[in-house]
Design a binder for these strands. Structure first.
Length: 262
DNA sequence: CTGTGTTCCTGTTCGC
DNA sequence: TGCGAACAGGAACACA
């Protein structure tokens, strides 16, 4: 849990995907970070001011921390820095937290912690996939009557929060479901979950848990995916003779096995 | 309202 | 080697 103070903040450009909120640096300066949490793909730092710093990495964003070497006697502007280091938090611990984002699809906003749930980016989010609330029944309900594909439904953050393009393909493969299958086929006419909904819910939980475990283990961090980025390779499922295909769906690459996914 | 396509931006990789 | 095209892990927005 974080307890450091933000001594100062450098904001090196006026915007990322959207403008920084007004008086951004001033509102952060001197604040203590009470907690660092997450909702879907949003990082949340709750501050002693009663505001929460809401951050999103977009596609190319990242944070790093390093020892905060003070400018000292160097002239202002004499320090070289990466053109994509857009925000630097100077912390009371003597370290700095640097936000780097070449494509600038990231996002930072400040919202009152009390009304965080009303924030437009947060309020429409569906259940966390690893929470007990994310069940086959919940998934079926969210997909009931949806004319769109399963792949699109999984990327819809209202249906389930936090799945991205890679793990949508991975989960559909584990569940044995075709990405283009209609989302509505997860539910019966009355909205009850069909077997496919149970399989997909379990597959999502399984794929995310193993992904997290992998990220926690340096040795396996770069292990290959099951189907993502593996077009023309043999299907990894035991006894399946299929070949992984790639197709563009809703403008995003989708990978699947046409033999074992139905 | 629902579903699909476009757009934001820059870096890397691929094919000629 | 150089060059342009295609593509990249996200989500807001415009539009049919």
């Amino acid at each position: 849990m974080a307890r450091a103070h933000i001594n100062s903040v450098e904001v090196r450009r006026p915007d990322l995907r959207r403008p920084f909120p007004r008086r951004f640096a001033q509102r952060l300066t001197g604040q203590r970070v009470l907690a660092l949490t997450r909702r879907a793909k949003y990082l949340l730092a709750s501050l002693s001011s009663g505001e929460t710093l809401l951050m999103h990495l977009g596609m190319s964003g990242s944070f790093r921390t390093e020892r905060d070497i003070q400018a000292g006697r160097l002239a202002k502007g004499a320090i070289e820095h990466s053109p994509h280091d857009h925000v630097v938090f100077h912390m009371s611990t003597g370290r700095r937290v640097v936000f780097n984002d070449p494509r600038r699809f990231g996002l930072m906003d400040l919202v009152r912690t009390q009304t965080l749930d009303q924030h437009p980016a947060i309020k429409a989010l569906g259940p966390e996939p690893l929470s007990p609330e994310f069940t086959a029944a919940a998934l079926a309900r969210a997909c009931r009557g949806k004319n769109t594909s399963l792949k699109a439904a999984l990327l819809d953050q209202c249906v389930v929060a936090g799945l991205g393009n890679i793990y949508a393909s991975e989960a559909l493969h584990v569940a044995g479901l075709l990405p283009r299958r209609r989302a509505s086929t997860l539910a019966t006419a009355s909205g009850a979950p069909r077997e496919a909904a149970f399989r997909l819910t379990a597959a999502i939980k399984e794929i995310l848990e193993s992904a997290i475990a992998r990220q926690l283990n340096v040795e396996y961090r770069d292990a290959p995916f099951l189907v993502y980025d593996r077009q023309n390779e043999p299907c990894p499922r035991r006894n399946c003779v299929g070949t992984i295909r790639r197709r563009v769906q809703g403008g995003r690459s989708t990978f699947y096995c046409p033999v074992c996914q139905r």
